[in-house]
Amino acid sequence: MSAPLLDIRDLRVSVENKEILSGLSLEVRAGEVHAIMGPNGAGKSTLAQTLAGRDGYEVTGGSVLLDGEDLLDMNPEERACKGLFLGFQYPVEIPGVSNMYLLRSAVNAQRKAAGKEEINAAAFLKQARAEAARLKLKPELLKRGVNEGFSGGEKKRNEILQLAVLKPRLAVLDETDSGLDIDALKIVASGIRALRDGRRAFVLITHYERILNLVSPDRVHVLAGGSIARSGGAELVGELEASGYEPFLREAA
């Protein structure tokens, strides 16, 4: 079996001196979709933020390898250029910076890191417009400031647009499905499915079964009490719907 794309071992993370993750291990191979579920406060977002390299998430133990390289040793932009994408739970607004301009800057920053030339502006625009159309994102949102005045659903679809254009190796989507109506959810799910191939992997952080029904994960994990309390196949989703997280909380304690 090949080496995992993402290899998290015994990860310990504190926020403001409080331990949130206490020995989390997870292996994600190329081509796989993993779902991470769990009660509020279990550390799901902490995991996502830590992987992306956010300040204030202090790693006190363990290791994380991306494609065999030490992820924790890299700054956020290096992680992004290595192919790690974080779909934000609450995408921030950046007034005055056009949505397309940020995305093109991101594409070019990542190309530069890979030793490639800048993307042709016309080709980029064509690609971005096509992806936006597939995601049913209004064309005017491409010109507007990043997330400026977007609805909640538009912000989430905009994250998927960035995902589709940047084509990362590993996408960590932090509750991208939250707050979406069923139509928007279907669009987001199809965006994810379209990118699914043998090279890429996804980690979906979610509270809800419904997105998993649309994406069908290879593995499902329950994060409780700072570590993976249980792992299984897609059937675990149904079990969780029936039992809730209560049994896992007890187990973790």
Partner: peptide, 23 residues
């Protein structure tokens, strides 16, 4: 952090945000 997570280094991220502010 949002900009850096997309691959921009810190200085480029600041420039981008400032230029947006001045647009």
């Amino acid at each position: 952090f949002y900009c850096r997570q997309r691959g921009l280094d810190e200085e480029d991220a600041v420039n981008l945000i400032v230029n947006g502010f001045c647009k």
